[in-house]
């Protein structure tokens, strides 16, 4: 089980790094990249499950999951980037904090 634990810890560390990046960088692109790192952690762990001691065969399920997950993450990232671009177009910067065109808020 030690291999599994190593993978588990690695994935948690990757997840945490991603999270740290998400919360510490104000720039939106960096935030999105950080999210992908978080996702990377999760995928890494999943793919590590494909070969485990229970049976000699390689379990196809984790691979299917990771493939699906990557597709989902790609589309989500694309959507997030799209929104970021709109924000950049409108405010001229890639930040979440300012919204100058709404004086009443």
């Amino acid at each position: 089980m030690t291999t599994l634990l190593i993978y588990a810890f690695t994935s948690i560390i990757l997840f945490s790094i991603g999270l740290f990046g998400l919360v510490s960088h104000p720039n939106l692109i960096r935030k999105i990249v950080s999210l992908n790192i978080m996702g990377g952690g999760a995928f890494l762990f999943l793919i590590s499950l494909a070969y485990h001691g229970r049976s000699p065969d390689i379990d196809p399920v984790p691979q299917a999951m990771v493939l699906t997950g990557i597709v989902v993450t790609i589309s989500a990232t694309a959507f997030a980037l799209c929104l970021t671009r709109r924000i950049r177009e409108k405010t001229g910067q890639c930040l979440l904090e300012h919204c100058p065109d709404k004086p009443e808020t």
Binding site: S11, M38, A42, P62, M65
Partner: peptide, 18 residues
Amino acid sequence: LLAMAGSMAFLLGVGFLY
């Protein structure tokens, strides 16, 4: 972004469960 972060956490949890 927050929802994504939540999803990632969920996905990691799925992995642990599996």
